[in-house]
């Protein structure tokens, strides 16, 4: 039997080798990124991995409704992952540098991308579970909870990789830098995911839009929900019953 790497071009083989190392030897991958060698090639592979894996899990989520939603979610989910990384990674460098850590934006960006790529690979591995949920006609809210669980596992794995990378570096202020990255990542990722929703849509939904009209930020929605909980209802709050999904 011919190995897949033997059939691929040298560039593809190198990319597959990088992905293989990411899955099997993360310490080696971290050391490679920190050394700064082949940073551009590693970044290119990570971006492609996030895009492809994000598209896979996005298509899986979209398949719950089917039709054009498969394409919509397959496009939007990689945008959320890559956009969040691009907006958040500079915060890691800046917070670290402000506490005396050596500022290496390229290395930090590659580290964040590698961690996200690892999480995206784990999410891609979960895609069959999403398809199984659809095949078994699992109720909508049960599916939502299952997807949240999958994303939580992938997110924790990604975070663990970043924490491990910075802990072994042991630079001044690395803990604060990780906390800062987590806060920025959660807020920016939450808002970007919110702005580009929906991903998982009920099978009976009729009118599908690529993105909903801007109804305010996630923060606005949370504040609106707090107000509603205290009995102060705004006419437009939660007017769209599809929620955050």
């Amino acid at each position: 039997m011919i190995a897949a790497t033997e059939l691929a071009t040298p560039a593809t083989s190198a990319a597959l080798a990088v992905i293989d190392q990411l899955l099997r030897d993360r310490d080696g991958m971290i050391a490679r990124i920190r050394a700064g060698t082949q940073l551009v090639a590693i970044m290119r592979t990570m971006v492609a991995t996030i895009a492809l894996c994000g598209a896979m899990i996005g298509a899986g989520l979209g398949s719950y409704r089917g039709g054009v939603q498969i394409g919509y979610a397959a496009i939007k989910l990689p945008l959320v992952l890559l956009g969040t990384a691009a907006l958040s990674a500079p915060a890691l460098s800046a917070i670290g540098a402000s506490l005396g850590r050596r500022a290496r934006l390229g290395v930090d960006l590659a580290m964040v991308m590698a961690s996200l790529a690892y999480g995206a690979l784990l999410l891609a591995a979960c895609t069959p579970l999403v398809l199984l949920a659809r095949a078994l006609s699992l109720p909508y809210h049960h599916t939502i909870l299952a997807v949240v669980g999958m994303f939580a596992v992938a997110g924790i794995a990604s975070l663990r990789m970043v924490v491990h990378a910075l802990a072994t570096e042991a630079a001044p202020g690395w803990r604060t830098a990780v906390v800062g990255l987590c806060v920025v990542f959660a807020v920016v990722g939450g808002q970007l995911a919110w702005a580009l929703r929906p991903y998982l849509v009920r099978p009976r939904a009729q009118d599908l839009a690529f993105v909903r009209a801007l109804e305010g930020s996630l923060f606005d929605a949370v504040m609106g929900t707090f107000a509603s909980a205290r009995g102060r209802y705004a006419p437009d709050v939660n007017a769209n019953d599809e929620g955050w999904r």
């Binding site: 907006l87 915060a91 920016v188 305010g216």
Partner: peptide, 11 residues
């Protein structure tokens, strides 16, 4: 960057 994004994507 994150602050600008959060601000401009809010109403």
């Amino acid at each position: 960057l994150p602050a600008a994004f959060l601000s401009l994507s809010s109403l």
